[in-house]
């Protein structure tokens, strides 16, 4: 019986499969902070919410992939140029769809997701209240 050779749990945590890599050094702002701490904080928050295109579920802030580096450079350059983080996100969504953002924008498709905590708490309170009332009647 020839079963799969692969171990079930090769959690090669962090072991990134080696993508073909270019010989170009990373862009200046890929791995360097903006001099203005407020701008850097804005950029960091945005980078942590953008999904790396070539990774296995990592944000561009947590990836060594070159494409993620170039996206970090793009984010920092635009923030430094005074652009609004939301506009940068929209610009990327326009190109890659909502797959690119870990922070799904609210609309007809995502409202159940965003209102979920309220829905769940509401349903729970309704169930629990039903119990209280019934008991008082009895």
């Amino acid at each position: 019986m020839k079963r799969l050779i692969a171990p079930v749990l090769i959690a090669l945590l962090a072991a990134m499969p080696l993508h073909a890599q270019s010989r170009m050094p990373a862009a200046q702002w890929a791995n360097q902070q903006l001099p203005d701490p407020a701008q850097e904080a804005e950029a960091k928050e945005l980078m942590e919410s953008l999904r790396c295109l070539v990774c296995q579920g990592q944000s561009i802030a947590d990836s060594d992939a070159e494409m993620a580096s170039d996206m970090r450079a793009l984010v920092r350059e635009r923030i430094a140029a005074g652009e609004n983080p939301d506009d940068i996100r929209d610009w990327l969504i326009q190109r890659y769809g909502r797959w690119i953002t870990y922070n799904p924008p609210l609309d007809t498709v995502t409202w159940p997701l965003w209102f979920l905590p309220l829905i769940l708490i509401g349903a729970g309170v309704w169930l629990a209240r039903g119990r209280f009332r019934r008991r008082k009647e009895s």
Binding site: E48, S49, R51, S59, G97, R98, W99, I100, T101, Y102, N103, P104, V109, T110, L113, W114, L116, P117
Partner: peptide
Amino acid sequence: TGEQLSVGPPYFNSTA
């Protein structure tokens, strides 16, 4: 819908 979207840390942090 066939659309690909991602749900990640910003969502979970702000809800959970």
